[in-house]
Each structure stands twice: as C-alpha cells, then as structure tokens.
Amino acid sequence: MQKRFTLITFLTLLFVICHLSFAYAIRPLYTEDAKVTPLGDLYAESGLLLLTNRDNSGVKELVTTLRYGFALDLEGSVDLPYLSRFSSENNYDGLSDGNVKIKYNFYNGYTDFASFMVGFLPGNFGTGTTSNHSDINTMLMYANSFDQFSYNLNFGYTFDGDNSGAPKSDYVIYNASAVRPLTKAMNIMGEIQYSRNTYTLTIVGEAAIGLNYRYNDNLTFDTALGCGLNENSSSSNFVVGLTYLVPLSWGNK
C-alpha cells in the first residue's frame, strides 16, 4: 500500500515537473501558491474543513487567513483557526495552532514562479485543540502551466518545537496540485498531499478534488472533497470557503 502510494506521488510529481510553464494553486486546495499577493492588497480567505477520521472522530475547523502584499515579491500572512474536535469520548472547541508566514517570490520566469516560505506555528494555548508547542515550517514552492493546466509543487519541512523531552517528530511535506478552467468563472482542481513523520516514519496521504467559482474581482467561492490514501490518513474531508478582497485596498485599484 505504502509503495503504491509513494509510486503514485512520484509519478504525479514527475508528470508535473515535465510540464513546465503561469500558475497558481488556489483555495480550496492545501497546496501553497507560489504567487505572492500584489503589493498593498489585503486578501482574506475563510474556509470550513470537515474532516472525519477512520474511528469516526473528526474535526470541524474554521480558518481565516489574511494575506498582505508588503513588497513586490514579499507577502505576509496569518492563519487564524478555530477548531471543534469531536469524538465518542470528548468534544473540544477553541483556537487551534495559528500560523504566521512570510513568503518571498525569488524567481519570476516568463510563465513560472518559485518562492520560499517560513512559517511560525504558535500552539501554546494549553487547550485540547492545540498541539501545545510551537513549530517552525519552511516550504519551497514552484508553479508553472501547460496548455490549460496550471501546476503547483511544494516541498516543505516542519521542525517540531516540542521541548518536553519527547523524541522530535519533524515532518517532510510534499504537495502537488493541478488546476484547469472549466468556464470563464469556474476552475476545477485536484491535489495530492503527502507528509512523513521523520521519527515514527508514518506517512499521511490525502487526495482532493475541488471547484472554485469567481463571482467577481472581490469574491470567489470554493468547495472540495477529499479522502485519505492510506490507513494513517483521514477517512474523508470536505472543504467549503471563500476568498475576498478586503476593502483596505479598494482605493488603490
């Protein structure tokens, strides 16, 4: 199972790398976009994730992300997640691990982009909805397009900030996504996510397919359905959300 999953991921990555050329990954996908928010613009993304595990426990997570273009090639963003964790034994509601990220677009080709991102995930809220330690996340992103398809590739590493003396569980992350326009206003997209715990060597893989609908320049709706690719992954997940341009930048347009 693990070998087959690794092979599928490898082939997807290979396929994506072979078709080089303007792309961006967009909500509702997890794959990070290599493009940065335009200078002076403030975008907000709000989304709900409904994830069910194989033991029928799960989470409902409402995340609002604020993205701001600080410079031509530099974006800062903050994730504000509110999480509701449910299982047969306990239910928790509360703030979850946030994420403060800086993304730098260091390569702007004719059609392709490459960026680097550093994120700080503060999680010391001492509730049942946080990890109770702060992690550091780094990620390299590449985007390109081929014909009507756009692709995004991520390679990330999360440094475990748990100083309780437990063995360090870092994560290696690979994401790949493809986006294709269906109509002038609608895109269809798919992705594969893969993460590997460097201590337990556990692999978590998820695949998702989604749609987004651009209503106008200010508002985009999205939805996605996903499933786990192995026994360590979720049983299913469902995402609904929207991206909107915050009025702050309207005066600049």
Binding site: S84, A185, Y215
Partner: peptide, 21 residues
Amino acid sequence: AENHLMRMGAIGSLIFAAQMF
C-alpha cells in the same frame, strides 16, 4: 441562468458550512 445556478451552488455551500458551527 448559468450565473444564477452557480450563485445558488455557492450560497448553498456557504450556508451548509455555516450550519455546521
């Protein structure tokens, strides 16, 4: 009509999500 149907889908998905919380 096409846009209206898309708007119905979009608002429906948002209401579905909002009712979850």
